[in-house]
Amino acid sequence: MDFGPYLLLATLEGAVGAAVLALTALGLSLVFGVMRIVNVAHGAFFMLGAIVAWWVADTLAAGPALNFLAALVISPLAVGAVAVLAERLVLRRLNYNPESTIVATIGLLYVIEQVALMTYGPDARPVVAPLDFRVQLPWFGYSGYKLLVIGASIVVMLAVWWGLTRTRIGLMMRATQFDSETARAFAIPVDRVYGGVFAFGAMLAAIGAVLVVPIQQAHYLMGNDPLLLSFIVVIIGGLGSLRGTVLAAVIIGLSDGIISVFFSPTLAKIIATLIVAMILVIRPKGLFGTQSA
């Protein structure tokens, strides 16, 4: 394939990766930014979102579009409920201590993965995309659904941005993130904000997963890579900066796609990984970091 079209293809692929990554990372960024805890189970919530989506589609069997829309509603709610439960039963009792939380969320990750394995099984299963068309470009064909994913991700991110900056709940979240002690003094129910943020973060991961499941398949180990990538994106972007998180997702997604054009695949991954590490070495607080980590 000629260089131009190849680059276009790699850029498109990178954009799809960035779109899903941005959503997943946005969820983690909120949890990390507001609660200051490393939630190792974030990838497990992502995986759970995908599995619930498959389950909804399989049970409902009402045609691809309806199945998908139902999954888009039910899956985040179900995952949010699990997150609330985990927050109430475990994290709150640990007082959100960063170190104990790592152990507890590793435990949670094991539990969720094993339950998924026992109920859903070890297979990778697809959900049919809600729309079935292939965009035939002069050089190659491209999945129309993947383009839809990019659009949907932008819509969700705009909604989150609106919610954070224009609503009362968003204000409370930002206040808690800025200084939880002062927020408490101003009668903001910090505990409930924490619970809400934790659930909302998990729900964003689930939305990302529902979007991805017609492209990849639901599998009980699928959460590990999104977890690592989300963490990377959140830190590169700069802790507490949503703008930074989104930009970092775009940079990482696109660089992964574009670097693959020039090198053999595994070497491209190594180079992309090292470049991202060096960004942080040069700018230790991330691209838009205002808070010290």
């Binding site: 293809l9 492209i215 990849q216 890579d225 693959s260 054009v261 695949p265 991954k269």
Partner: peptide, 12 residues
């Protein structure tokens, strides 16, 4: 590569 989950970009 072992960590890959999408393959489209390799087909060219």
């Amino acid at each position: 590569p072992p960590t890959e989950s999408s393959f489209f970009k390799y087909f060219p």
